[in-house]
Design a protein around this nucleic acid. Structure first.
Lengths: 100, 100
DNA sequence: CAACTATATGAACTCATATTCATATACTAC
DNA sequence: GTAGTATATGAATATGAGTTCATATAGTTG
């Protein structure tokens, strides 16, 4: 109905921009970007992430949830510890980002 | 003073993450990302950007200012019209982003 | 079982930022 | 000069999202 057509196919492109925007908003946040920077080097549990960052446990947990919901990280539990790592998607994204 | 060292060199990496975060926050916003999507195809004046997007003149102007301040776009005036286009940095960034 | 550790979660609060509104500036045409 | 068009800008408002706090859950150890 509205007359804008950003690129070739209006709605398709619009959706694409929307989902890219959503993804970028998640990774652009500084605390989350720091977490991703650490996870790029391999799996870490939450308490390790706390030691690397000066973020509270609760905050880290919230951010990890966001990253997990976005499919950027995954986790697996070993006893009390929960270990987080990048998914393939997460690896791809972080690699692209740090080229910028 | 604080004990975190995200990557190799604490402060250096921290600054890098901070500036990347700043940049990504600017381009992640959906309205701005739409504008960039249009500008990827070439120079456009503000009134053209208004026709492609359903954003107000004022809002577009504000966003363009943010993008310009970040060095992503530049502009040149021809009569009443102000034409915006991507800088080299802007082209590099948008190319990277749309690969994600 | 109770005590303890590691992590998750929901709600409240705070803060940043997108949006709107009114107005200013710059340029053109008459 | 005035009128009209295109764009910019500052302040106010609205909205979304990050942070904190308290508490819950899950697992371990004794």
């Amino acid at each position: 109905m509205s007359s804008y057509s950003c690129c070739s196919s209006p709605s398709k492109e619009s959706k694409q921009v929307e989902s890219l925007s959503t993804l970028l908003k998640i990774v652009s946040e500084e605390s989350r970007l720091k977490l991703l920077c650490i996870l790029m080097k391999g799996e870490h549990c939450v308490c390790e992430l706390m030691n690397h960052n000066d973020l509270s446990q609760s905050l880290i947990s919230h951010h990890l949830k966001d990253l997990k919901d976005a499919g950027i990280v995954t986790n697996n539990k070993k006893g009390l510890r929960v270990y987080y790592s990048l998914t393939e998607k997460g690896q791809h994204i972080t690699n692209q980002l740090f080229k910028i």
